[in-house]
Design a protein around this nucleic acid. Sequence first.
RNA 1: CGUGGUCCACUCUUUC
Length: 385
Amino acid sequence: VTGYNCLMSGLCRDGRVEECRNLFEAMKVNGLVPDGYTFSVMFDGFSRNGDTEAVVNLFEEAMRNEFEIDAYACSVLVNVLSKDGRVSKAEEVVETLVKKGLVPTNVIYNTLVDGYCKIRDVDGAFTTVKRMSSIGLKPDRITYNSLINGLCKMERMNEAEKLVMKMHENGVAPSADTFNILIDGYGRTNKLDKCFENLKEMEKFGLKPTIVSYGSLMNALCKMRKLSEAETLLQEMLGKDILPNAQTYNMLIDAYSSSGNQNRACELINDMKRRGLSPSIVTCNSLIKGLCKNGLPSEAEELMHKLRDEGFRPDVITYNTLMSGYYSCSNVHKVAELHEEMKNLGVKSNIATYNITMSALIIEGRMQEVNKLYLQMLRENLVPD
RNA sequence: CGUGGUCCACUCUUUC
């Protein structure tokens, strides 16, 4: 079993999910019983392959055959379901396993708490914390970080601060992540002074600011279009041993491009290349967004073609950005065309894609097609918002 | 004796 597990782990890591599945079948044929390790590897591999349905099916198969899912595999399963937004399915799974004698762990509860936070269900998250306490598990640093992050993302900073206090009272030490979460939260609420305050505060706890601390700050400055401050911060990072990464550059490139300064955006792309960092599809999408925001969707589309020839793969965000660019220029006909194009290229639509496309079709009066699209969206298990 | 699990920063969002 160990041999199979190791092989399967390697295959999944390589994205070779089909071969992994074949090995799984082979091990059963050879009379071997897959264990928790086997399932954890497959749950994670299938999920990374974007196939959450396969994960659910595998779990059901495990239940039918009385294969054991241990706490470790359960936590992996809960994580992949939660990351897909299917927290209630995750709860169902835990309930089933508990009935079979599984003792839930901190990791399982933390994963659920984070799952609730990510779907903005803070009440669900707190209820889960109560449940874990009731069976004698104490909220740890990760539990608190998830909750604080959930509150910060909803811009409920006062409640987040209260939790930080409570964390302190309960003797749970903050981590660098805790401060990074707060810096990000204050950045999103435009409280730059609080960002810098927390940057200092983390040093008092003997924690060094990380690339994420600076990244959160950079993001705040860029979103507020405080571009000269952002440039200064970039220089400061270069002067410290916190080297900017591609993501850091992407924030600056996005800000410059969206505010119409394509030149500076391109200069920054050259800078990042000189530093050995590669532009990604995110970088490209920022440039495309900038052109769209400045009323130049056809230039943006041209750029997309050029980038595609250079080997970048346009994704759902590229297309949504372009379509929304055309939509704001009232070129609704192009929206439907691009939706066709992305389908033909195998780029999977998301809820935003359908919303934009349906809006465009409605303006064009193509109501039957709207209906068809709506049904198709439901068939793809997308939930209308 | 085995490579498996939970928390932090970047791009898209109809209604305008």
